[in-house]
Nucleic acid binder design. Structure first.
Lengths: 245, 245
DNA sequence: TAGATTGTTAATCGATTAACAATC
DNA sequence: TAGATTGTTAATCGATTAACAATC
């Protein structure tokens, strides 16, 4: 039941190397699709179905799964329950994982009671904020603690994933403390590049980046933005009006 | 869908083809780094500096910028202000862009007053929610409107980027309405694959996906998760002490 | 000029797609 | 068996890196 990744050197070696980063990022998509299928009472699914449900190519999907060491059945497809369990195992999602959130502004609060975390085995163990006014406040069933208690909070949550939802200026300091406290996995929402030791895994979600990419595409779409029919040449909008319908 | 660039037809054409998706996603990083440098009073920056600040390779960065049609100066580097302006222009960030947010739960609220949006030229024009109890409530200076008014709200916000922050079950319906109302760019936080016509650009941010990817890496990290005990083996710091400098 | 650094090409690396033999 | 669908290989495509000539 443990990670059989470092498997016995007898099993057809070479079959599965490490999954590529791109492949790993697709695993949660497969898992979500399988969960939905299972909820519908489906017991098997073909690579084509899963591909359609996830937006991934069928060939890529089959390759990912085979590298996982799964066993679909030729002529039939994959066993929904079994594959879901296998992916969950692979992702470490079958075990509960602990999370500490630093920064309890609106975003931190939103994350604290985000359904998608709990339903995938993530348990928020502590909420920390530098603002003393917030301390004691209850969010998502947890009392917000002063950031001084970061180390203590992390100690009570191994292995711990740290989530940084502070303003950009505070992020590196918080990151340093998390790392010093032993946290090796960090998800940050602060729009800064965090410096960390090599063994620490940082993933960054930049909300405004996504919007900027959309804006880029919109701008060069044929009828998208460039033709400002009624829009004033440069200055786009007064931004004053109430807009109300 | 040739990425027809509108620029003044005189600038050495042919030099830049369409930027790859990967390159486009790096533009906001460059812009942020340049903004930070400008704030520090720096007037020029080399590709090496920008690479270090963004975590991108210097060669890749130079290639991206040259495809943008920029002009750095050999032996000197890039003009910080000028390059920032050029990238902002390219991203459409220099013009204010309008945004409508559907779903005003915690996440929607967090997005509504996220600094990173406003500071990059995104203006939230309307907040919509299906819950009548929320209607009229003020969030980030805007009154929440009933979702019935979606079409009207979109009409008052061209060109409009739609942000979906509803529960998964509601997402496709909202998406359909946005598309019908003319929205071509959608950012969704709902963990479902949205079906849209080809001309609509959808980007999806899946918060739990990021956490799952972190969990995957943690699980196969040498001292990461597999060892159940407190694993002092590799762990560098005791994690107990106050750590205060 | 001498030193620095870009813009660009060629080489490498990796990921996706297509195809099909294996096999349920 | 006949039909379906996997697992895997080979081909394609794209992105990153290295290197260096151009040139400020």
């Amino acid at each position: 039941m443990t990670a059989r990744r470092s498997e016995a050197p007898g099993t057809r070696a070479g079959a599965r190397g490490a999954l590529s980063d791109a492949a790993v990022a697709r695993l949660p998509l497969y898992l979500a699709a399988l969960t939905a299928l299972a909820a519908d009472g489906r017991t098997t699914a073909s690579s084509e179905e899963l591909a359609a449900a996830t937006g991934v190519g069928a060939a890529a999907l089959r390759k990912d799964l085979s590298q996982l060491g799964t066993h679909g059945t030729r002529g039939v497809g994959y066993d929904v329950e079994r594959l879901a369990a296998q992916i969950a195992e692979e992702l470490g999602t079958s075990r509960a994982r602990s999370v500490v959130i630093v920064g309890v502004g609106r975003l931190g609060q939103a994350l604290a009671d985000y359904d998608g975390f709990a339903s995938r085995g993530f348990r928020v163990r502590a909420l920390l904020d530098a603002d003393p006014a917030l301390a004691g406040h209850e969010v998502a069933g947890l009392a917000v603690r002063p950031v001084d208690e970061l180390e203590a909070a992390v100690a009570g949550c191994t292995p711990c994933i740290g989530v940084i939802a502070t303003p950009a200026a505070a992020a590196q300091g918080v990151c340093d403390r998390l790392v010093a406290a032993g946290v090796r996995s960090i998800l940050t929402f602060a729009p800064v590049v965090l410096a960390v030791p090599e063994e620490v895994d940082v993933r960054r979600v930049d909300l405004s980046l996504e919007l900027q990419v959309l804006a880029f595409h919109a701008q060069r779409r044929p009828g998208g933005l460039p033709s400002p029919a009624q829009a004033p040449a440069q200055a786009p909008a007064p931004a004053a009006a109430g807009v109300t319908a």
